[in-house]
Write a protein that binds this DNA or RNA. Structure first.
Length: 523
RNA sequence: GACCUGGUAGCUCAGUCGGUAGAGCACAACCCUUUUAAGGUUGGGGUCCUGGGUUCAAAUCCCAGCCAGGUCACCA
């Protein structure tokens, strides 16, 4: 109780300090003055009472014309976004969670008696753009044909003390003074969401995409699970981790870079289909395709292989496109991407033959190094066959892969958790789905042979000792689990952020993550 | 990490050859009863990212730094 009291006291004290000592802009001072005057008039600028809402902006705009009788007695709340005051009558715009609707206020209707303060003083001078208000009244259509709420009573629900950018759209649909500065938009996403039309829609689509995938997987009978974010050993991907420390246990912990090894332990335990939408963390560079924390959906299904998983991925992503866009064709930048099944499938060797004109099947390291030189790809001694093939693929093929495509059968060195190919030595049973030149999924027939797995980990350890910080560290408990026996299984990792980028035509990963990572503001 | 570009009013942006800092929206005051990027009149508002330097004089030129975006590298 005492600490609560002192916290509250410190909070109030520091708030007052800030308000009195912080340098305020003229517009902030105006709003504080308005707030004081409201209090003097007996109006609480932050009232606690519920304001009962019985309709949304979208509901009115969608249905009023068809069903005018239902909109005689409405109550709606939202943010005041624009005002056009014409003496004793005014138009304004109210924005709620569903959209914007025009409201109409007449002095003598909201102030039927002698006292015109509510209109003349409160509405015209003490309320500002950004304030939350509640109105009651009825819906009508103006002379120019705009569906509008005729206000009979008006109340202030929450005062806004900072000026919101005013974004306007003209009759041709052109946006003026859009809140555009990306740094401000990402740092103050609340403002971005409040004033920029379309931003909210991107994030609503993000949730719908995740729901669509979840629905699909639940429909197949797979179980959504949760596995540790804090891991004593990081594994399941090639990446540098974030390291942290547990005080009581006095031991290092890592934020997960993947959850693969935990989900496979669950397959060992007898679950036959498990998935998780996982926040993963990778301590690497950032650009418009990489945020240090990102969302990956991983799925493991017993008794299946990577060929089966390819069909599932096609079905799943096609469903997402249909759920979000109603068609398999999705506009991204200058391209129309078509997710209609079946997608093209190339082995990695076929892709390199097609796009680089090189036949690398059966080539030795010297020959590959020569090819790399031809393509001006830098090589070093740590690079084996696999690494060079991977490099050749990413420089010559990937940029050309715009339409969704599966690339299959990767070199074994790059895939320490994938099962060796049933018929092609040196390769593993793995595929990536690539779209718009970026990987969106990665999957394999999971390696379930504990002896082979131990050897792969040992190979990785050698790479690690040579200075490869991304090489995987051996996980003895995982091997122990495999030794008890894991059924054959197909596994998948799907980059949710990148899928959302594509489905929402967003050029940067920061556009699909509410609060992308940023350096602190200097103050 | 390297290179390129940018940072000016609350927002969006101009700012010429180095010579007292500009516009639109927003804000304040006034007018206006169906407007809609409402309109009209008047007015206020600036650490020109920060710190140095050159100069009689710097938003502007030079150097260093901070933040952001882009390209590359690293990385899936």
């Amino acid at each position: 109780m005492r600490w609560l009291f002192s916290c509250t006291f410190v909070f109030l004290y520091s708030t007052r300090q800030q308000i009195t000592h912080m340098e305020l802009t003229d517009q902030q001072r105006e709003r504080l003055k308005a707030l004081e005057e409201l209090v003097k008039l007996g109006i609480n600028p932050f009232p606690p009472e519920e304001f009962e809402v019985n309709v949304t902006a979208k509901d009115i705009l969608d249905n009023y014309e068809r069903d005018k009788l239902s909109y005689k007695n409405i109550s709606i709340a939202g943010r005041l976004m624009n005002r056009r005051i014409m003496g004793s009558a005014s138009f304004a715009e109210l924005q709620d969670g569903t959209g914007r609707i025009q409201i109409y206020l007449k002095r003598d209707e909201i102030c039927p008696g002698e006292d015109k303060t509510l209109y003349n003083r409160v509405f015209k001078h003490l309320m500002d753009i950004g304030d939350f208000i509640g109105v009651k009244g009825y819906v009508f259509t103006t002379q120019t044909g705009e569906t509008t709420v005729h206000v009979k009573s008006l109340s202030l629900l929450s005062k806004s003390l900072r000026p919101l950018p005013v974004v306007k759209t003209d009759s041709e649909g052109k946006t003026h003074d859009e809140f555009r500065d990306v740094e401000l938009r990402y740092r103050q996403r609340y403002v971005d969401l409040a004033v920029n039309e379309g931003v909210r829609d991107v994030f609503m689509k993000r949730t719908r995409i995740i729901n669509s995938i979840r629905e699909f997987l639940n429909g197949k009978g797979y179980l959504e699970v949760e596995t540790p974010v804090l891991q004593p050993l990081y594994g399941g991907a090639r990446a540098r981790p974030f390291k942290t420390h547990h005080n009581t246990l006095d031991m290092p912990l890592y934020l997960r870079i993947a959850n693969e090894l935990y989900l496979k332990r669950l397959i060992v335990g007898g679950f036959e289909g498990v998935y998780e939408f996982a926040k993963d963390f990778r301590n690497e560079g950032m650009d418009r395709f990489h945020n240090p924390e990102f969302t990956q959906m991983e799925l493991y299904v017993a008794f299946k292989d990577y060929l089966w998983m390819m069909n599932l991925v096609e079905e799943m992503v096609e469903k997402v496109a249909l759920d979000i866009h109603g068609t398999t064709q999705v506009k991204y930048g200058d391209n129309i991407l078509d997710f209609c099944r079946p997608w093209k499938r190339y082995t990695m060797y076929e892709a390199i033959k097609k796009y680089a004109g090189l036949d690398i099947e059966g080539t030795d390291e010297d020959q590959l190094e020569k090819y790399c030189r031809q393509l001006s790809i830098k090589t070093d001694k740590s690079m084996g066959r696999g690494a060079m093939i991977d490099e050749i693929f990413s420089t010559t093929c990937e940029p050309n892969l715009v339409q969704p495509v599966f690339i299959t059968d990767y070199p074994v060195e790059m895939s320490p958790l994938a099962k060796k190919h049933r018929s092609k030595p040196g390769l593993v049973e793995r595929f990536e789905a690539i779209c718009n030149a970026k990987e969106i999924c990665n999957a394999f027939s999971e390696l379930n042979d504990p002896i082979d797995q131990r050897q792969r980990f040992e190979e990785q350890l050698k790479l690690h000792d040579r200075g490869d910080e991304e090489a995987m560290v051996p996980d003895e408990d995982f091997i122990r689990a495999l030794e008890y026996g894991m059924p054959p299984a197909a596994g998948l990792g799907a980059g949710i952020d990148r899928l959302v980028m594509i489905m929402t035509n967003s050029p940067s990963i920061q556009d699909v993550i509410f609060f992308p990572q940023m350096k602190p503001e200097r103050k």
